[in-house]
Amino acid sequence: MDVELLKMLAADPLFEGVSAQQIEDMSTFSQEVGKLHLRLKRYKKGAAVCSAGEVISSFGLVKSGRIIIERAGFGGESALIGTAGAGQLFAEVYACSRQPMMVTARAEGECEVLHIGLESLFACRREGAERVLKNLLRITAAKNLALTRKISCITPRTIRGRLAEYLLYMYSLHGSAFDVPFSRAQLADYLNVDRSALSAELGRLKKEGLIDCRKSSFVLSPEFINGAV
C-alpha cells in the first residue's frame, strides 16, 4: 500500500486503535477473500461519485478534496444535504441498508476517494477488523446526531430563528468567533431558505450589532449569545 495513503488511514477515525501494520495486513486492492477490499479513484470537479437511485455496496473515504452531498428537488434544483472533506466518510448508511440512494455525492473540485467494500469488512477476519466495525458504528451514530441537529436548525419558522439555532450551535463548539464550513449559498441550502432572504437577514443582524460577518467568518455579540434576537 502507498505510504501516504497508509499514513492517512492510520490517522483516520475509522481506523482508530488499529496499527498501520494491521491496516496493511487486512487490506487489499484486489478481490482477495478474507481481506478488506479497497479501491482508490480520482474524480474531476462536478463528477458524481454515487448517484440518487443507485444501490451501492461500498462507502467512501475522502483522501483529498471535498464531496458535496445534494438532493434534487422538484424542477431539478439541488439542495445541499451535507459535505465530506479529507478523512471523512460518506454513503456508509446506504451501503449498510442496500436501499437506493436518495442523494447524490458529487466532487466539489478535483478529489480522490477511497471506496471501501462493506461486505468485505463484515467478512474480514484479520486482526483489527472488529475495531474498524466498532469505529464505523460510532461514526454513523455521530452522523445521525448531526442529522438531528440539522432538523433542529430548520424547525424554526423564521429565517432569523434558523440562523440563531445554527450560529448558537457553532458558538457552543468554537466560541463567539468562528468560520462556518459553507459558502453563503450552501448555508442557505442547509437552512432551507432563499439565499437573498438569508443575506438580507444577516444584514439586519449586523446592523443591529448582534453579529459581525464577512463571507464565512462570524463573530457573535453577547446580546446574540444571550438570546436577544
Score class of each variant (00 low, 15 high):
29 F>A: 09
112 E>Q: 14
89 L>F: 13
33 V>G: 02
47 A>F: 09
37 H>I: 07
74 F>Y: 00
57 S>F: 12
10 A>S: 15
8 M>S: 13
81 I>W: 12
10 A>F: 13
82 G>I: 03
85 G>V: 04
34 G>S: 09
99 Q>R: 02
39 R>N: 15
88 Q>A: 10
84 A>N: 08
21 Q>Y: 04
68 I>G: 15
63 K>V: 15
109 G>D: 15
103 V>T: 15
8 M>F: 13
53 G>W: 03
5 L>N: 08
31 Q>S: 02
5 L>F: 12
90 F>W: 02
79 A>P: 07
17 G>F: 04
87 G>Q: 09
6 L>P: 13
33 V>D: 09
25 D>N: 15
107 A>D: 15
46 G>V: 03
104 T>D: 10
83 T>L: 12
108 E>V: 00
12 D>P: 04
88 Q>R: 01
53 G>F: 06
12 D>K: 06
32 E>P: 04
62 V>G: 14
22 Q>L: 07
22 Q>A: 12
38 L>T: 05
70 E>R: 13
37 H>L: 07
39 R>S: 13
53 G>K: 02
52 A>V: 12
75 G>V: 04
90 F>M: 03
83 T>N: 06
13 P>V: 13
66 R>P: 11
36 L>T: 03
58 S>E: 12
80 L>Y: 07
31 Q>A: 07
60 G>C: 11
19 S>L: 09
38 L>N: 03
63 K>I: 14
69 I>V: 05
76 G>W: 01
57 S>P: 00
30 S>N: 01
97 S>F: 04
80 L>M: 06
4 E>Y: 14
7 K>P: 02
54 E>Q: 07
18 V>G: 00
36 L>H: 05
30 S>Q: 03
52 A>Y: 03
106 R>L: 13
15 F>M: 05
95 A>Q: 00
36 L>M: 07
111 C>Y: 14
48 A>T: 13
90 F>A: 01
6 L>E: 10
62 V>H: 14
41 K>W: 01
22 Q>W: 06
84 A>T: 07
94 Y>M: 11
18 V>D: 01
92 E>T: 10
77 E>S: 12
95 A>E: 07
74 F>M: 00
42 R>T: 05
23 I>G: 06
28 T>Q: 03
90 F>K: 05
19 S>D: 10
89 L>I: 09
26 M>W: 09
10 A>H: 10
35 K>L: 12
74 F>H: 03
91 A>V: 00
11 A>F: 03
80 L>S: 01
66 R>M: 14
54 E>W: 05
30 S>R: 05
110 E>P: 08
59 F>T: 05
32 E>G: 01
67 I>R: 15
55 V>M: 05
20 A>L: 05
22 Q>E: 11
50 C>Y: 11
59 F>E: 06
55 V>P: 01
25 D>T: 14
98 R>S: 08
45 K>V: 05
72 A>L: 08
77 E>T: 12
20 A>R: 03
108 E>P: 06
27 S>E: 04
20 A>K: 05
15 F>N: 09
21 Q>T: 12
102 M>Q: 15
44 K>R: 11
58 S>Q: 09
100 P>I: 09
57 S>R: 11
95 A>W: 08
97 S>H: 00
28 T>Y: 01
113 V>G: 14
112 E>I: 07
45 K>E: 15
78 S>Q: 07
112 E>V: 10
10 A>G: 12
100 P>L: 04
50 C>V: 14
87 G>K: 02
65 G>L: 06
63 K>T: 11
49 V>K: 01
86 A>N: 04
